[in-house]
Amino acid sequence: MLLLKDLVRKVKDLPPLPDIVVKLLQASRDPDASVREMVELIKHDPALTTKVLRLCNSSYYGLPRKINSIQEALVYIGTDTLVNFILAGCLAAFYQQSQDGYGLESGDLWRHSVGCAIAAQLLSPADDDALKSEAFTAGLLHDVGKIILSSFVGDKMQEIMDIVKDEDIPFEKAERRILGFSHTEAGAQMAKMWNLPEPLIEAISLHQTPQAAVNHKRLVAQVHVANILCISFGIGIGTDGLAYSFDPSAMEELELNSDDLYAISVKVHDQFSRAEDMIGLIAPTGHADAKAA
């Protein structure tokens, strides 16, 4: 059984979240932060600048002219999208390894996270750019706890799945009973240690139990439904499969019925297919370069 100190030690063993991510997240939530400040943060990182320009000039955006500077990129794709992209680029490094404990092959968790980010964003009100951006980020991060728990799951996966089936309870409850922590709790602990904003911590922590959300009910509901959609479509799922509970209170919060959800699923599929290009671009280890060549 895991103790909190084991978890903390494991998080400390991970590479730290790059400073630029935390600074950009803070700047993007600050209405007084200027585009110039954002550009200043990014332009001192040549590798990041190259990736951002490559993304802007990719078929994903299909812009009519070539973008040559971060300043131009911000004008064309907007600050929120740029922050999302940079965050995704930094997080990709954490997600590329296989999470063998969960039966996830290399890249599976990343595909699941990108799918969830796209779906969570699409579930936002059309006129709420801030929530769209926050939902995308929360979607990317919602299962981050699997990265550290994977090595502890090890050969206990079968035991966890036996409990799921015998007692008909959701995966995270059986996971907590066997390991001492669920991946949602582990993820929330990571997010706290990385000093991520409070709405993201709540979304990571409660995305399986959205009725427990207090301060960010809408965001948590979006991530819950997005996660259920991606699991249902088999996007980056592992041995845990579809062993998660759907909470209808999230649909009430979002004022959706199942037909609305089916219609949104088509859009998720369309955007996820187009994002394959983006997924390749932000891969950290040679993938993007190989693709560009």
């Binding site: 008909d168 959701p170 259920i228 699991i231 249902s232 579809l242 062993a243 998660y244 509970s245 759907f246 209808p248 649909m251 199942s258 959800l261």
Partner: peptide, 9 residues
Amino acid sequence: NVMDRTGGF
């Protein structure tokens, strides 16, 4: 199917 005791999804 995901686990759904209410039949909503």
